[in-house]
Computed example of a mutant assay.
Amino acid sequence: MAHVLVVDDEAHIGELVSLHLSFEGHTSDRFLDGRAALEAAKTQAYDLFIVDVMLPGIDGVALCRALRQHPSTRKAPILLLTARRDETDKVLGLDSGADDYLTKPFGVRELMARVRALLRRASTGAPANGDEPATDVIRRDGLEIDPSRHQVTVDGRVVETTAHEFAVLKVLAANPGIVFSREAIIRRAWGPGTHVTERSVDTIVKRLRQKIEADPAEPTRVLTVWGVGYKFRDVATP
């Protein structure tokens, strides 16, 4: 079972989340501010972070960025809780490194469904639609994508990717030269019922390019097909 860090300045929400985590056998530590949560994350191992956006000390977006930069926390999935319904705020959260978001007020069943999906993908690399993950290593244009280890290597250098970034890259790199619409990427990477939006795909691709391209402003691997979507360049397998 998972060890989860929950940080929300509304104590009753943190208690509710922890209670329902315990019902499924998970343990959790609760914090009311971002700074205390970050210090704990640096000294203890967590399998999942549930982070409120509006926090004293360090806000949730800044906390997500800090978690993604620290070696011991960069791979753990992050579920962002937000009271803001504006899509711009949700994209900002994903851009900071969060893997998923949930808008307040939320239902407990939906919360736990998101938790299960994030933990499942983190532990097995399985897509959200429940299909068995591909285990063959994908090699394309200096990239090596290993689904079984959830690892991406660029020109011999391991780069850290979030679950969302890995899922998008795997879909594109496994089908070089094939153009995918944003909707098709969502369908192939996560299946039905996902809360990833088409605009979120743009954010994920932007983050991916910063990690795998020599010049993210002039990408040579993940290419934009204007008015359609994205594709991985059509290259021979090394």
Rank of each mutant, 00 (worst) to 15 (best):
A2R: 11
H3V: 13
H3Q: 14
D9M: 08
E10L: 13
E15G: 08
L16D: 05
L16Q: 11
V17T: 11
V17P: 00
V17C: 06
E24G: 02
G25Q: 01
R30N: 03
A37G: 15
T43Q: 12
T43W: 09
Q44F: 08
D47F: 02
I50F: 07
P56V: 05
D59P: 03
D59T: 15
D59C: 06
G60P: 04
L63C: 08
C64P: 05
R65S: 07
L67I: 05
R68E: 02
S72L: 08
A76G: 14
T82Y: 10
A83Q: 10
A83Y: 10
E87Q: 13
T88D: 04
D89A: 15
K90A: 14
K90H: 14
V91H: 12
L94F: 09
G97C: 01
G97K: 10
A98D: 04
F106G: 14
V108F: 04
R114D: 06
L118E: 09
R120T: 15
R120F: 07
R120V: 11
A128S: 14
D131Y: 03
D136K: 00
V137L: 07
R139M: 06
R140A: 09
R140C: 13
L143G: 07
L143Q: 05
L143D: 02
I145H: 03
R149H: 00
V158H: 04
E160S: 10
E160Y: 07
T161H: 09
F166V: 01
K170I: 00
N175T: 15
I178Q: 04
F180I: 13
S181T: 15
G191H: 11
G193K: 14
T194H: 06
T194V: 02
K206G: 11
K211R: 15
L223Q: 13
G227I: 11
V235N: 11
T237D: 01
